[in-house]
Design a protein around this nucleic acid. Structure first.
Lengths: 350, 350
DNA sequence: TTGAAAGCGCTAACAA
DNA sequence: TTGTTAGCGCTTTCAA
């Protein structure tokens, strides 16, 4: 078996087109200073020979690797896959990120790292060292982790931080959590609800706070009390505990907004056990809108996170940074949506 | 800004350990002909300096790329992501494939290619040329596509073919579709059913035929007729049409096995519309067991495909092939499982 | 068992 | 606008 090598290389193209390697390289990379007819000739040869640049070689020659890493929380991601609950965070990231990478000759590589471990630095260095990605997409809680941020910055890697506004390197992309919470609350107020509870997300996620803020603002505007706030950490058990505490209040809520689908499902089931009908006696709105929200009965009214759109923007921004330095530094904002379904209705009459 | 370069390279390690580059390379690749104490010294330096080999450079040097491609059908995958129906085929592949790759210093890269297009060859050549993967994991219907198989073989790339036994290059991994169908049918027979229908999958999937075979075999063994076979192509609409035709039979089924979750859901809903209760009047079993099967009401008894396990084996086999030539060539078989849930019960009494 | 040399395919820096 | 040169970090020869 012959040693495996690139069938057709930049040399073949150069020879075929009768130009130097460098000219071919310039054409491939859309660089200036190539006469149009020259470029055309080179492109002709590229197509005729079926030439495709080898990413590894491009990496070796120059600075760019044309690789972008999507960093996700290891345990959470694996648990989601194993439980097969249909949580599609990763899929939506791939949908936006992979396809966008593809359009630019980049590749997206998914990488899982332990969040709460002391060897996170070593893990990350392993991926960085082996791949040398041009950029990294960080999701919460990684996107606000100073160890990770610092490490990436020291390596000169572009950083896209989803769901974090903490000052630091890289640029932020947020999904309008505050407005989304406000929108959800307003929807309930418009239906006639006066007692609206919120189950918060884990406190180490910045977006948890934003949701509380939006909920508070909407209530304040309507002159309603914001005493119905219960802590949660996104998972089912915490949702159940929160529902319990909210519904045990002296003046209980007629509607509850949960900061995750799992907590919303927990609330739904707990309410049923207490003999409450949804939505007749209790309205429920969830955050995330993973498939489970749609499969519930009734289907849950939910805040739809534009994950794919945000991933697309993250990739585009990272790629743009490779060519240009002075890009706008303000956070990118993509509005969330509210999908109104069967779990919300006017409150019961007194 | 300085030109981005590998912070610590093999040279640094060699200098630190006082050996040649070559010796370090040998240690990294676990090659023979290195004295233990020498290897130990090198490993010490590697750890101390935090050295990680750059995959791109390893590729350039020759040898392996340490990259494995997971090829999926482009349209189908994107549609699944966009519809957010919770189909988690890709996730399960990642679960098995990515984690296994990680354990061996490999990376798994997901790649989507158009199935029914004439430029499939060009698309695939693009991915192959850019990445030069050591192996490719093929899923149906790619796994039986002669154009793809031939192309990969010509490039000397290891091929893992999931769900195909068609002769050709590469090695096969199958998920026991025949046995699974037999198991599902037996389950229904044990419950007392005598009229058991099957909605087949798309005919261009080999596994569709295997399922029919298994169903037939079980029926034959029990002395039952196998006239209740309806064609389908995995999607909702075809499931609905099939349910319609089966239930319109003179002697209609009391149980239906659908070759996909979507077709099972369609059957469930169609039966309801006809006033049939599930499982009291009609039992239903589905194939795949994506989350939708569990979220249905009643939750569907379903054949669970061991996708993650198969992906794991595919990766391991591809990696093994890189080092060794004479590996067993028989198809790898991973048994599917039957998750018994609320959609199956004894047939109604006459 | 070890090391020195050559080269993988490409790009950056420089010269023409 | 184009071409030449010198690497990038690693592995494969091959020689010691």
């Amino acid at each position: 078996m012959p040693r495996r090598r690139q069938a057709v290389t930049i040399k073949h193209v150069a020879a075929d087109a009768g130009v130097s390697l460098q000219t071919v390289s310039r054409v491939i990379n859309n660089e200036p200073n190539v006469r149009p007819e020259m470029a055309e000739r080179v492109r002709g040869s590229i197509n005729r020979l079926g030439y495709v640049p080898l990413i590894a070689a491009q990496r070796m020659g120059g600075s760019k690797s044309r690789l972008i890493l999507a960093l996700n929380d290891r345990d959470r991601t694996i648990a989601g896959w194993q439980n097969r609950e249909g949580t599609d965070w990763v899929d939506q990231m791939l949908l936006g990120g992979m396809l966008t990478c593809g359009r630019h000759g980049y590749r997206l590589i998914l990488e899982l790292v332990d969040t709460h471990s002391d060897h996170i630095e070593r893990e990350l260095l392993g991926a960085i060292g082996a791949l040398r990605p041009d950029g990294v997409i960080l999701t919460p809680p990684h996107s606000q982790d100073p160890v990770i941020l610092d490490l990436l910055e020291r390596h000169g890697i572009s950083i896209a931080r989803i769901g974090s506004l903490t000052p630091g390197p890289g640029f932020s992309l947020i999904m309008g959590d505050e407005d989304a919470a406000r929108m959800a609350t307003d929807h309930l107020i418009a239906l006639g609800h006066r007692r609206i509870g919120l189950i918060a997300g884990a406190t180490d996620y910045e977006l948890s706070g934003w949701r509380v803020t939006g909920w508070r603002a909407a209530l304040a505007e309507a002159g309603l009390a914001d005493d119905l706030l219960a802590p949660g950490n996104f998972d089912y058990a915490s949702g159940r505990a929160a529902a319990n505490s909210l519904l045990a209040a002296a003046d209980p809520p007629t509607a509850i907004i949960a900061s995750s689908d799992q907590m919303a499902i927990a609330t739904l089931e707990y309410a049923r056990e207490r003999g409450l009908r949804v939505p007749e006696d209790l309205s429920i709105i969830s955050f995330d809108d993973t498939p489970v929200a749609r499969f519930a009965s009734p289907p849950l009214t939910a805040v739809v996170q534009p994950i794919a759109a945000v991933a697309t923007l993250a990739v585009e921004r990272i790629i743009a940074e490779q060519a240009q330095d002075d890009l706008p530094t303000e956070p990118v904002y993509v509005a969330a949506d509210l999908a109104v379904r069967g779990s919300t209705a006017p409150p019961p009459r007194r």
